[in-house]
Design a protein around this nucleic acid. Sequence first.
DNA 1: ACCTGAACACCGTTCAAGT
DNA 2: ACCTGAACACCGTTCAAGT
Lengths: 197, 197
Amino acid sequence: MSRPPSARKQRADATLNRARIVSVARTLFAEHGSAVPLTEIARAAGVGVGTVYRHFPTHADLIEAAAEQRFAEIEEFARTECLRAEPGEGLARYLLHVGEVLAADRGLSAAIETARQSAGSEPRGESRGRLEDVIGELVERDLAAGTLRDDCTVADVYMIVGALSATIGSGSGDWRRLVRIVLHGLRPDAARRRSDE
Amino acid sequence: MSRPPSARKQRADATLNRARIVSVARTLFAEHGSAVPLTEIARAAGVGVGTVYRHFPTHADLIEAAAEQRFAEIEEFARTECLRAEPGEGLARYLLHVGEVLAADRGLSAAIETARQSAGSEPRGESRGRLEDVIGELVERDLAAGTLRDDCTVADVYMIVGALSATIGSGSGDWRRLVRIVLHGLRPDAARRRSDE
DNA sequence: ACCTGAACACCGTTCAAGT
DNA sequence: ACCTGAACACCGTTCAAGT
């Protein structure tokens, strides 16, 4: 489902190995963070190191692949829970949920950070693109409900998620409080409600 | 000035070497981030690797020592510029200034992150303690001026600086905008002005 | 076409020998 | 008391040999 058409003719063992590597990486990253030695992943997956490199040339590729599923899950949540929530509550629900997921999966923070690096240039995983669309809808919905200041953008949400990820990763501080503060900061200011250029 | 009384009898060359190492580390960290090989620092300082380890047993110790001066500078700024600013503008000035410094010194983010790790347990550098005091005054002053919600605390400021540090370090996103959003989020909400609890 | 794992490079850390 | 740098350990990455 994920393979581009040009690379269709894969050998059966190759496909299986790839799946095994991703599966193992997902577990180990979630538990110990994304700094797990590649050798360990290879051993746990029952393949040689070279095989890991063949499928995932750079470290970031593997991290990305391991995170794909989480992003798909988050997208699903955003569609079913956030887009159908009380008008104006979508973003709040979204940020709190992302926080929960980040807190439960230490490897995901790394995926978010490496995604940052290649911002705009690479096509990235496919879940990512769809997720971006949903976030766009989310923002527009809350804008219409009047709970967001009118200059709020998808880029803001990405920046905030990055900040949130770092806060959770560092383990200190009450990240839920940060979410509350930021959400409050994104509300329209009663004072400048109608002027605005 | 920084040495504890018990370790007074240091040999002249040891003191000099220590100073050289810190000086070199400061430059290299600022330029390339804190991931610079220790071998390179040793070479640039004109000492053997063993000497670096003798003075700074852990990597975090060196990062901390290199950052000390910056923290002192930030403290100075906080005292002269923020504590004497327009009432209610102290924290805003502080966060913007810290952002500038972080943007100009790539190594400082690492110092802030490692400071996080050992939060509460270790005595840390001396500038750190004094800085914490100033931030406390800053918060109280803005609270009195009515520009901060009454549950705002020094811990909030630390969490925010951490988030800011990560955002700047990742290089993507408009960190000044994040500061603006957060500051807005820390303003007292007109609606819940007196009830509370 | 794909896999394996030994080989190489690099960096962190220690420690015996030197002053 | 302190310094040096070779030695060891560990991990990332490549590539010749195998199926």
